[in-house]
């Protein structure tokens, strides 16, 4: 695998990573090696509890490794403090299964909120919100509240929020976990579109059929390590 990627810069690089959750006897990840190159779209699959979400947590700085090294966009984030974590998250956006939208703000405000707190000026902010909503196909729902949207639509808003920040990497932790098949495919299509525009995407999914159909490079996590690597042919 390392020969195959040697000429390209690694966007995400995990080497010999071990992570044991507090109170757990066995490590969730044990000596895990993982490399995702710049501009790649990689899917992580595996059983529940296999450590997929832990990998996303480590890459976004929400969790810290007990051993090993983690480099994101060339920077070592193995032991990361609050300030550098904040800096990292402006370049690495995370999408969650639970959407994480603010319930008392409209869709437009939810997207603008993240831009506003990152100091993006008003005119630029409005433009980016428009673009992001256009991209996810929800320009007409700008004034709606999250509760007025379906699960699929809410997840599309979460994608729009991530996109608006123009991150270099998108990490998506089971983004289709709460969605039906049709909406799940829609989210993956969106992520593919972003990937084609140059964004590196690392996504976890329990739905092997879906990632198989999309022809993604797929890594299966088992017993805390990457066990199998497959590149599926697109089946649609």
């Amino acid at each position: 695998m390392s020969t195959q990627h040697s000429r390209t810069r690694a966007a995400i690089l995990l080497e010999g990573v071990r992570r044991t959750h507090p109170g757990a006897g066995q490590p969730t990840l044990d000596g895990l090696d993982l490399r995702v190159d710049d501009g790649e779209f990689v899917a992580l699959t595996g059983e529940s509890g296999s450590g997929k979400s832990t990998i996303i947590g480590l890459c976004s700085g929400r969790q810290q490794a007990d051993a090993g090294n983690i480099r994101i966009l060339g920077r070592d984030i193995t032991r990361i403090g609050a300030n550098r974590r904040a800096e990292l998250r402006r370049r690495v956006a995370t999408i969650f299964q639970e959407y994480e939208l603010l319930p008392d703000r409209t869709i437009g405000e939810n997207i603008a909120f993240t831009l506003e707190i990152n100091g993006i000026p008003g005119e630029e902010r409005r433009r980016r919100v428009d673009e992001a909503l256009e991209l996810v196909g929800l320009p007409s729902r700008r004034e709606a509240l999250p509760e007025q949207l379906s699960g699929g639509e809410q997840q599309r808003v979460a994608v729009a929020r991530a996109v608006a920040l123009r991150p270099s990497i998108i990490l998506a932790d089971e983004p289709t976990g709460n969605l039906d098949e049709e909406n799940g495919e829609l989210i993956f299509d969106l992520l593919s579109t972003l990937n084609q525009a140059g964004t590196t995407v690392l996504v976890t999914s329990h739905d092997v059929n879906l990632v198989t159909r999309l022809g993604l490079r797929t890594l299966r996590i088992h017993d805390g390590r990457v066990r199998t690597y497959r590149r599926h042919q697109a089946g649609r």
């Binding site: 976004s60 609050a82 300030n83 904040a86 800096e87 990292l88 998250r89 402006r90 370049r91 956006a93 995370t94 994480e100 939208l101 603010l102 319930p103 909120f113 993240t114 707190i117 990152n118 929020r161 920040l165």
Partner: peptide
């Protein structure tokens, strides 16, 4: 609480 969580997730510093 949710605002704080979302702010933290999108890269807002603790100071902010």
């Amino acid at each position: 609480n949710k605002d704080i969580r979302v702010m933290s997730l999108v890269g807002t510093s603790h100071r902010q």
